[in-house]
Computed example of a mutant assay.
Amino acid sequence: MKIDKIHHIAIICSDYEKSRHFYVNLLGFSIIQETYRELRDSYKLDLLVGNGDMIELFSFPSPPSRASNPESCGLRHLAFQVKNIEETVDYLESKGISVEAVRLDELTGKLFTFFKDPDNLPMEIYQS
């Protein structure tokens, strides 16, 4: 068996309109397709990230909260590569998004930091 790549990352949100705005208008991800699934009373929003990565944003009625602090087993965070971390931090903060202090990855020598989506999902930005 050989896995070629990650096809997509799926995120369940608690407030579809708020999360849609965050990912599309603030982070700038492009909409591939938006589908309302009446039987599930749920939206599925396919988003293009960069040059081919995809996030599926789902809404479901009353999803349980995600345990974030302390960190629990499972998916830890999503990391997005950026060319200029300072410009990205300035942009996010100008949109009212709190960003942690920029740190240096002692293993790679690269700069990185974290912010959170509307449901407190940790997101990392990592300078290329």
Rank of each mutant, 00 (worst) to 15 (best):
Y16L: 04
G52C: 07
I125V: 14
G52R: 09
P118K: 02
V99M: 11
C13F: 00
L121D: 04
D53W: 12
E17N: 10
F60Q: 02
M54S: 10
L48V: 03
P63M: 03
K5V: 01
E17M: 06
E71Y: 12
V99A: 13
G109H: 10
D15I: 01
F22E: 05
L121H: 08
M54Q: 15
T35D: 04
S98F: 15
T113W: 10
R40N: 14
F114N: 12
L39Q: 12
L47C: 10
L57D: 00
D41V: 02
V99I: 10
I12L: 04
R37K: 13
L57G: 00
I97C: 09
N51H: 13
E93A: 04
E93M: 11
E87K: 14
I32L: 12
I9M: 13
S65H: 11
I125A: 12
F60W: 03
N120W: 07
P63E: 01
S14T: 15
T113F: 12
L57Q: 06
N120M: 08
L75A: 13
S72Y: 11
P61H: 04
G74V: 02
H7R: 09
Y16D: 06
R103C: 03
S62C: 03
V82R: 10
E17V: 01
Y91T: 03
S19C: 06
F115V: 09
S62Y: 06
E100M: 15
N25H: 13
P70E: 03
K95R: 14
V82M: 11
E71K: 14
I9P: 01
S59Q: 00
L104C: 09
S42T: 05
I97D: 08
H77A: 04
I32W: 10
E86M: 10
R20T: 02
F29I: 06
I97Q: 12
M54K: 15
S62K: 09
G52S: 05
G28V: 03
